[in-house]
């Protein structure tokens, strides 16, 4: 291999090394930011937010009650799902639920960073809306006592253990994301928080 070829190889090496160094530096910077105290505090806030919502919901519904999550307001459904899915007995039709959970804006003592969960009557049971007593006073966003720690996997109340099609008769349900939002009865949505 001649001198020129070696120089060309060196050029390729330099180009490869530069690219790798560039992405390595970027990776180091990313890891640095992610492990910063500010990032950790923000993560703790989000973690606490879902713990708070979960604790909020646990005061409204027990794990053995079929629950439907409202799709109003749009986008809030997944927030509630993330807070309760680990222990709640989710169903995709309001008519099959004892209660329906909904995320609402709230600045009262029961709120979690400006939101709280309220319970509305479902098709099977409760005829009145249930108030959110609000966990913020005892387990606010920074609280470590969320639903996972109290009623985690050991609670044997998995979301599908009782509510799956295997345990219910009838045709397969529509995908929840495709299902239309349930119509709320006037006056049923309220929260005392």
């Amino acid at each position: 291999m001649g001198l020129l070829a070696r120089i060309a190889a060196l050029a390729v090496f330099c180009a490869a090394a530069t690219i790798l160094w560039s992405y390595a530096s970027r990776g180091e910077g990313t890891v640095d930011v992610l492990s910063s105290s500010r990032s950790v505090r923000l993560a703790q806030f989000f973690d606490g937010y879902y713990r708070c919502l979960g604790a909020n919901a646990r005061r409204l519904v027990s794990p053995d009650e079929p629950v439907h999550i409202s799709e109003h307001p749009p986008g809030a459904w997944i927030t509630v799902a993330k807070a309760v899915e680990r222990w709640a007995d989710l169903v995709d039709r309001r008519s099959e639920a004892v209660v329906e959970l909904r995320l609402v804006d709230s600045t009262g003592p029961g709120s979690c960073a400006g939101r709280s969960i309220v319970a509305l009557p479902g098709g099977l049971g409760r005829s009145r809306s249930l108030p959110s007593r609000g966990p913020a006073s005892r387990s606010g966003p920074a609280s470590r006592s969320g639903p996972a720690s109290r009623s985690g996997p050991a609670s044997r109340s998995g979301p599908a253990s009782r509510s799956g099609p295997a345990s219910r008769s009838g045709p397969p349900r529509r995908s929840r994301l495709a299902a239309g939002a349930p119509q709320l009865r006037a006056g049923s949505a309220e929260s005392r928080s």
């Binding site: 899915e85 989710l90 169903v91 998995g158 979301p159 599908a160 009782r162 349900r173 929840r176």
Partner: peptide, 8 residues
């Protein structure tokens, strides 16, 4: 059951 549950 979770595998078959349309609510999830």
């Amino acid at each position: 059951a979770a595998l078959m549950n349309a609510a999830l």
